[in-house]
Design a protein around this nucleic acid. Structure first.
Length: 427
RNA sequence: GUGAGCGUGGCCCAGUGGUUAAGGCGCCUGGCUGUGGCCCAGGUGAUCGAGGGUUCGAAUCCCUCCGCUCACCCCA
């Protein structure tokens, strides 16, 4: 990739090459199957939205809004933003299409690219892909448990090991303000000892002091007042009920009172899944409840909860853990041929076999049979059909089993059935 | 936005001042006329990230820029 390459994929974006597709399809397949088993339906929203949608819901103070959004003015002079997260658009769609008239909760899943202007590093991109689910219109803690169970279940289905599930409750508009005051009070006499970032956040966003990763700030965060200890009765009941459901489901959660989240719309339940070994961008999955979001968008008070997972991070962990994933494509049947007549027949035969559902590749023309065989072998062909003068005259093909190294003459008539017998197995 | 490391053919990489930049993988061809995977031989392919400077002479030293990677911030 020298200067000879005129264009490159933009920084922080990546081509997903054929060699990696098997992992992607594996994850997508399992995720979709999981969502369907739980009665979730797919929704696709536009790649860009009016900027205000995100500013309003994600929060003016968040990093996403302050420095990470791809916002541009379209030709009509409107401020548009490339989707930096998946929840707000889904809620917008819920409202726009009157989904509150459907049986509640409305269960939706999505699979989409999201964009954030950040410095890329391992497991972090400017364009990445998320699979997520949202359950809208039901405040029952059982729904929280369902969604958390799905997040955890997906990881199990994928075969990922050594993950931890962290949960916390950060209260709601009734109890959080008082808790935030308690936090500020607690931190006020300790400001001197904190890092500059934390000092700056003390007034604006004290919750974030809790998840500061600086060694020197850790001890204070550990001993800080816990949100779960300062919940109003309703939130407390919700929280206890959720924990009860998680116990019943046998989901191995860990309470982490330092778990907050970077988006403002979360209420009550928040959770994350990450690999046990820390370091780098570890969060595979994050989510929580957002009971005020739809109201914030001008809709009726409507509770909601969901999560999003990063495709790239799941794939990364699959590869790190060496999880075996099924082959992407079946092994092809190759057709080698000689002479102009041979090529004509090869192309015709290929079309016929394909319409019977077989995977067929015609070997490159203008090469010796030797070269064509070499090519067939390199393509991973399970079977090679050879078509030359002789075969055409007799209305036969030479069928060579590439693994066994044996071949025989068979009539073209009824070839499909014969080929179906030697079903090409995955590589 | 901050910090560190690195940039040699499609990929992995040798070469740290001196003849036409070495090797491996890959790709293509051939090893007698229609046969692969091993082996052998040959071929394709690099303005050594870009620009400037030092020097008789630089891929090798210096500067600037660009890019990549990793980490911080934060998130999936």
């Amino acid at each position: 990739m020298g200067a000879t390459t005129l264009y490159k994929a933009p920084r922080g974006t990546a081509d997903i090459l054929p060699a990696e597709q098997r992992h992607w399809h594996y994850v997508e397949e399992r995720a979709v199957a999981l969502a369907r088993r739980h009665g979730y339906q797919r929704i696709d929203t536009p790649v860009f939205e009016v900027a205000g949608l995100f500013v309003r819901t994600v929060g003016q103070e968040t990093d996403i809004v302050q420095k990470e959004m791809y916002t541009f003015e379209d030709r009509g002079g409107e401020e548009m933003t490339l989707r930096p997260e998946g929840t707000a658009p889904v809620c917008r769609a819920y409202l726009e299409h009157g989904m509150h008239n459907l049986p509640q909760p409305v269960r939706l899943y999505y699979f989409c690219p999201v964009f954030r202007y950040e410095r890329p590093q391992s497991g972090r991109y400017r364009q990445h892909h998320q699979f997520g689910v949202e359950a809208l219109g039901d405040a029952d803690p059982a729904v929280d448990a369902e969604v958390i169970g799905m997040a955890w279940g997906l990881m199990q289905d994928l075969g990922l090991r050594d993950l931890s599930l962290l949960v916390n409750s950060i209260g709601d508009s009734a109890c959080r303000p008082a808790y935030l005051d308690r936090l500020r009070e607690y931190y006020a006499p300790r400001l001197e000892a904190l890092c500059p970032d934390c000092r700056a956040r003390h007034q604006r966003n004290p919750l974030r002091l809790l998840d500061c990763k600086r060694e020197s700030c850790q001890p204070y965060a550990l001993e800080a007042p816990r949100s779960a200890d300062h919940l109003c009765p309703e939130c407390q009941e919700h929280w206890q009920s959720l924990l009860g459901h998680l116990e019943i489901l046998g989901i191995p959660y860990r309470q982490d009172h330092r778990l907050v989240r970077g988006l403002d719309y979360y209420t009550r339940t928040v959770f994350e899944v990450h690999p046990q070994e820390e370091g780098g961008q570890s969060t595979i999955c994050g989510g929580g409840r957002y009971d005020g979001l739809i109201q914030e968008l001008g809709g009726p008070p409507t509770p909601g909860i969901g999560f999003a997972t990063g495709m790239e991070r799941m794939v990364l962990n699959l590869q790190r853990q060496g999880v075996a994933v099924p082959a992407e494509a079946p092994r092809p049947i190759a057709i080698a041929h000689m002479g102009p007549a041979g090529q004509r027949e090869a192309i015709r035969l290929a079309r016929r076999l394909r319409s019977a559902g077989l995977t067929v590749v015609v070997t490159p023309a203008a090469r010796s049979l030797k070269a064509q065989m070499r090519h067939a072998s390199a393509m991973g062909a399970a079977v090679t059909l050879i078509l030359g003068e002789e075969e055409i005259r007799k209305a036969e093909v030479t069928l060579r089993d590439m693994d066994a190294g044996r071949q025989e003459s068979v009539p073209v008539e009824g070839l499909e059935a014969r080929l179906a017998e030697c079903t090409p197995r995955p590589q």
